[in-house]
Design a protein around this nucleic acid. Structure first.
Lengths: 252, 252
DNA sequence: AATAGCCTATTGTCAGACAAATGATTTTCG
DNA sequence: CGAAAATCATTTGTCTGACAATAGGCTATT
């Protein structure tokens, strides 16, 4: 009996591979070549086929460039956070995937009573309690984003927001795997910085911000989190693949 | 005399596979299962390993969900897309779909020589001609957007931009159905209005604009149009559905 | 010195095999 | 008979080894 796999943990091999490969890519200076695929697969203990799936995934994220006959090269990320909008992930998860060092500043947690607008969003009655979690995200000693989550206490109570809280409501819900999430409906816009936000982000008032409003839904169809996010444009590039719609069949 | 923009017949196998697979996914109703990987790879004429690289790429975009022992399923990515970003359409088509009356002002058409940045985008040589089409969009007697298309002359020549031209490069290409389009890679950002654009949109300088940069690709994988679009935020709200990444393996 | 051809390293693709997970089916047994 | 256990078929996950295609460097020839 040939057994080349002594022990396989329950964790997803592919995810572990993605982490390892992500680390290697991040540790490699932009423009440099990675080791060859046979070498890497040997180093990482996976087959070349599996490694190539991960490579393809990173290529799709614009982190590497593969050239047949030459090698695989690390692209210059230019300290930009560039990500697809199709999949929702926390900025902390995104940053660690990109090898950027982020830290959180100015965590503010309040419980407030729902005003009319908020009550309507959550389909709650007026003055129901809503937990508001606001934070500033720093990258390389500069504030780059301001994020506000409004979440109903049934999903995240104030007691849960202890030392272990990283700041990301999304990550917390995902980690405990309850409730099961389905999708987020996000609206993209632009806005001048209000005085309050400008101060937090060390900007001038009315400087330009990219704004996203997101409604997070569970598989039951309940809306459990309404967030407003403000990004300094220079640091963030959000991508989306737009497919070609059904053409007008009338014209042939 | 050597224009290397002509595509070799031997197009990227992976790109072709992505197109085929994309069509299959789009034709499959959400929630339905795709054929098994061995079947699909046989249908599409590629090996299972290559197919799986493409699958991984689509999984990363949140289009499908794969479950070991069960199959691969098409996710429901458009619960409600009204002005969603998922599908590319011209602003003229969008407006007519919404019953808005739009008109075009300030159509400007130039031919310019590609500078370094533009040449790199199109993979052309320096100073190759590029046609630039800029226009202002008006809705209800107010300018609301400024759109710039840069397109290679092989796709749209200056002679084609006659009276019948509505202003939309996208619509023109779609109407004549050549070349066949595949998708657009769009980046969303925010920017203050430059003096030139502010004047065209009747704004103050440094007023906030939503900016989109889009690269339009044909089914051959060639990039044929690079566009910059500036929208006044109050008039546009772009939505996108973001699915939850599969953080938890094999847990139905 | 310039050029054409060869060599080698690297990614691209393939075929086949087995492992692991899942849901349906059949068997076992109280 | 009914429920639990075992079995089976299907499907994705991963591995192995091989060959093709490409690019860049090296060498021999002119």
């Amino acid at each position: 009996m040939k057994n080349n796999n002594q022990k396989k943990e329950k964790v997803n091999l592919f995810q572990k591979l993605q982490n390892d490969l992500s680390r290697i890519i991040n540790e490699t200076p932009p423009g440099e070549r990675l080791k060859s695929e046979p070498e890497l697969s040997a180093d990482l203990g996976v087959s070349r086929a599996t490694l190539r799936e991960a490579m393809r995934s990173f290529e799709g994220q614009g982190l590497i460039r593969r050239r047949q006959g030459v090698g695989t090269f690390v692209l210059d990320r230019n300290q930009n956070i560039e990500t697809g909008l199709e999949v929702l992930e926390s900025i902390e998860t995104l940053a660690s995937r990109l090898g950027l060092e982020v830290r959180m500043g100015f965590l503010e947690v309040n419980q407030l009573a729902a005003d009319e607008a908020m009550a309507a969003k959550f389909d709650l009655s007026l003055k129901s309690p809503v937990n508001r979690i606001a934070r500033v995200i720093w990258i390389s000693e500069r504030p780059v984003a301001y994020l506000i989550d409004n979440v109903i206490p049934q999903v995240i109570s104030l007691e849960e927001l202890d030392d272990t809280f990283t700041g990301s409501v999304l990550d917390k819900i995902l980690r405990r795997n309850s409730p099961e999430l389905s999708f987020s409906k996000t609206t993209v816009s632009a806005t001048p910085a209000s005085p309050a936000i400008a101060k937090k982000l060390q900007l001038q008032r009315d400087d330009v911000l990219l704004k996203m409003e997101a409604y997070l839904y569970t598989k039951d169809g309940a809306m459990i989190d309404y967030s407003e996010s403000y990004f300094i444009p220079g640091f963030f590039r959000f991508q989306v693949i737009r497919s070609i719609g059904n053409q007008n069949p009338g014209n042939g």
